[in-house]
Design a protein around this nucleic acid. Sequence first.
DNA 1: AAAATTTGACCCGC
DNA 2: GCGGGTCAAATTTT
Length: 326
Amino acid sequence: MTLVVGREEELLAQLRELITLQPPSPTWPTAPTPFKAESGGGPPTAMAEDEASCQGKRSRRRGSKRDGGGDKGHVVEEPASAAEPTTHHSCKRRRKTKQQQMSSSLVTSVPDFDGYQWRKYGQKQIEGAMYPRSYYRCTRSAEQGCQAKRTVQRNDDGGEAAAAAAAEYTVVYMGQHSCTANDSMEAPVILETTVVGGRPAAASTSANVVANSPSSGGGGGGGGGSCSPTTTPSGFASPAISDNDDITSWSSGHSSGDYGNVFHDESYCWAAPAPAPAATLEEMGDFTGPIRSPVHVPAAPTAGTAQTIDDGEEGHPDMHCTVSIS
DNA sequence: AAAATTTGACCCGC
DNA sequence: GCGGGTCAAATTTT
């Protein structure tokens, strides 16, 4: 691999020197976190509990389809009157108030590759957002009761062409992983991170790193493991997206270690939030999220500065890192 | 067959 | 009532 060259490491070293390096957050599962693990005796709002106690399924007609054959006709349409609102009451679903959940958000060009496997359970077009938001939960949520969840939404930062080339995604992590992470996978290129204790606000710090990194080959819709990271031989292409304005088929994980090796070479970096709110940094210290990047570029001691590191190699714009500190 | 995605409906907080 | 988050049947891919 010609990707990792001495110069790059040099630059990274400089970068690290520039800023007080903070040990990268190890694995999320083992470290203590402010999150409330709610397995078993947890609050009554735990969904697992709801699902377990709620055996009655909501009467609903399904409607997904995706072939050109038009809507499936085999779905028995029930008359509107059939919608019995009463049945739902028997098994109330209690949701945790979003604002009360601890969450962490980050901006990355590669939503996946955070060491965990996620399963998409929903997607929704968000008001005012250009791209839909995808909802994921840990694939171990069922077998291990892992409560970790995350939402991925593509940033609608102007540039059409730019967006296509290096789309950035805001990933919000919620809940705590009670499962074991996939060691072979590494963290994504984190452009920005923000820990929010109270509301999953979008990242708002000024730290910014621009870099590409290996990503999954996407692999369109449906199908298990359709986006295996090993399907992208060339490796360093932008995240494949099934549609221009869609972030579907994103799934991280996969035990392939190919890219993990690349990451271990510290060939990419990520930045922690700017020194902005001290409280935020403190929380970051406690927060032990899924971020497992080998190169941690936390806030710089000096404010109002911007560092740009570029390997200068034409063929590897992926090593271009820009850190802005405010 | 199993696992993952799609996607409209449903639920609930504001 | 609106909008965001979740459910779950249908569908797709492996």
